[in-house]
Design a binder for these strands. Structure first.
Lengths: 214, 214, 214, 214
DNA sequence: AATGAATGAGCGTTCATTCAT
DNA sequence: TATGAATGAACGCTCATTCAT
């Protein structure tokens, strides 16, 4: 395997310096677009190459096999989602309850986006037979829950670490489950706001008064 | 086994008479098994044939194309899931709250089964690009919600039709969302019982006191 | 091979007695229709069975293989074309020249029919690799030429047998060649009458004054 | 061999640069050979690949589908036939009548070649269900007729454009029709010369004295 | 970095044919 | 006569991957 050398003499893997880095990113984005637009069963190296405007040979210079490409695509994706969470929380001001409401609302509204509606079910399916998707999900949802935990702890400081963990798991799972029903082009898309209402009510009730098991 | 061959010589669709009906069913089950075991991206006519112990040619005598096979598999599957709901409810006695708890518990526990954990994410993904999967989901979840609605109406008769609809949507969506987290082989599988606890608590609170939007 | 016995005790091949004979004919006609409508590259036992409203199994009871079916179809077809020639000639009255003009006109006009335009090129192509099509063509065109010869001999009795043979070959070949140009849906279809004009002129000139080689 | 690879890096269609161009041509020729040898109903990508000494995958790298291959084969073929016409005419000297005789003789003699006898009926059949074969025939025969028209106009300058068109159509159609009768391995192959005699006589008579409709 | 060429496997599908009933 | 079941081969096509340049 040929290795590119950067100007400071450190050996870099393919496509990690200068133009290559840019191309790698473009490929990851093209791959994500293709996955969303066509689904995993239409996700092929050839089509990614076409979507990215590359030749197949060149694509495979950057990502020598399909697994590597999927991994890169997921890695690129996870970061963007986490950034969104953090930003929302930062913009929601100091009141913990307002922060919580903002996050729940954000995540729910996000389900309406074609990108989210299409992307996650593919990943969930993928995670049943492709190891890296499992890792992707673990990392992503872990950080997601962490944010929820921090906010919930402010709302009700009496909750133990364990109880917070379980609440976060329940809440995040519940929201994800709406993807297939209120997502983009799904039959209950127009009911999203009402789902948010119900969700916020019941989640806040759980945080404040629920007898969450220890 | 009922034989539908009529005495007036009307042609039957393939695989609907005697031996054929049996083979058709065996194929649908083999297909389901394969989908669960290997995922949709490994779901091919050849592999279904192999799983069912048939030659490819013979499989395609029964199901002339892949769509027809998938349709048959889903149709076969939907019925079995709905039957389970009904049975559970029937066995749960007369108390509506007990019935509700039994159903929620059943559905949650069902998520632990490998079959369920693997099957549904594939269908959700499928439903983004295969029409019949959409229809399958619509029918299946509609009946599922109907059962929830009936029981909830008994628990709190003041809830309007609309409110019941929305509650059912929220509850069923929330439960489905746990598939990827407490399902078979998933990292939080052992927390299932605690999730059930939380779920039942918050769902019952919603049914009794929640200000569900109209 | 099972052999049916007729009422007089003579063994008949499949499908030659009573209902069977009728079905055999229906199959031959369905086969011809399919060939014309879809071309030889879409000509399969299955499609013939479907066109004829039979099951594949039953079709193959009458014609145990594809060759036998094609043979039957061609045999059935040849007779109908020859009958048309004879009838035309009979209806054209006593004047030989009028008879000749009538035949030429008939054959040319026949090229405009979808049936003829589509059928013959398939047979010509078939005759390059399927023995029975060669035999079909030989028989059919031989009788066709015979009719031309009889009429031409009346127009110019000085022509030798050999000369008549060659004239008939030239004339029939020339007309057949128009199939691909003035046939049904072909670019020069509307010029058919003018081609008939030219053809009759030049053919009559040849018959009367041409120095046809001996 | 000209190499078309440009220096500015513009992507070329597959098989147009260097080695690829050579392979593309070899494939087209192999395809033609197969069509002639085995007929269209035996014309498959696999057999073309085998004839050309390629793997199926590689053949489909050059021609991504069967249509593209057939198109390339026909396009390659048409040019060679037209070149022959032009050459013949050029070599026939200045006398228009001699040119005409030379062309008619060439085309007739060409029918005796296995290549021609087998190729054209396949194309005629193809043109009933494959669009590009229609285009192939239109272009090819149009140029063919154009050459005839030019020569005939010199023989009899009084003929109108329209009359020339019709004569050319009649003459070319008539000659084509002989393919199935005096072609390679056909029953009247040995009579070719006599057919040429008759054809030239009657065609020249038509050109000079025929009352060709306006 | 980038391209074009090549391989071999697998896919969904159609088909002629055989056979038991 | 007629039907349904089954086989095995072939087809057009897409694909991941490898390699030379």
């Amino acid at each position: 395997m040929r290795v590119q050398k950067s100007s400071v003499g450190i050996a870099l893997p393919r496509g990690r310096s200068g133009k290559g880095q840019h191309t790698s990113l473009a490929i990851a984005l093209a791959a994500e677009k293709l996955l969303i637009e066509q689904g995993y069963h239409n996700f092929s190296m050839r089509k990614v190459a076409q979507t990215a405007g590359l030749t197949l040979g060149n694509l495979q210079y950057y990502f020598p096999n399909k697994d590597a490409l999927i991994k890169a695509m997921l890695d690129n994706c996870i970061q963007r989602y986490l950034d969104r969470f953090e930003q929302t929380r930062a913009h929601a001001g100091e009141d913990p309850e307002a922060q919580f409401k903002a996050i729940i609302t954000l995540v729910f509204k996000d389900l309406n986006r074609k990108t989210t509606t299409r992307f996650f079910p593919e990943v969930w399916s993928l995670s049943n037979h492709y190891g890296h998707a499992v890792k992707f999900m673990d990392e992503m949802y872990e950080k997601y829950r962490l944010i929820l935990i921090e906010v919930m702890a402010l709302i009700n400081p009496r909750l133990s670490e364990h109880q917070l963990q379980q609440l976060a798991l329940f809440i995040s799972s519940s929201i994800e489950g709406h993807t297939m029903f209120v997502g983009y082009d799904k039959p209950w898309m127009s009911e999203t706001d009402k789902m948010i209402d119900i969700a916020i009510q019941s989640f806040l009730w759980l945080i404040r008064c629920g007898r969450i098991p220890a």
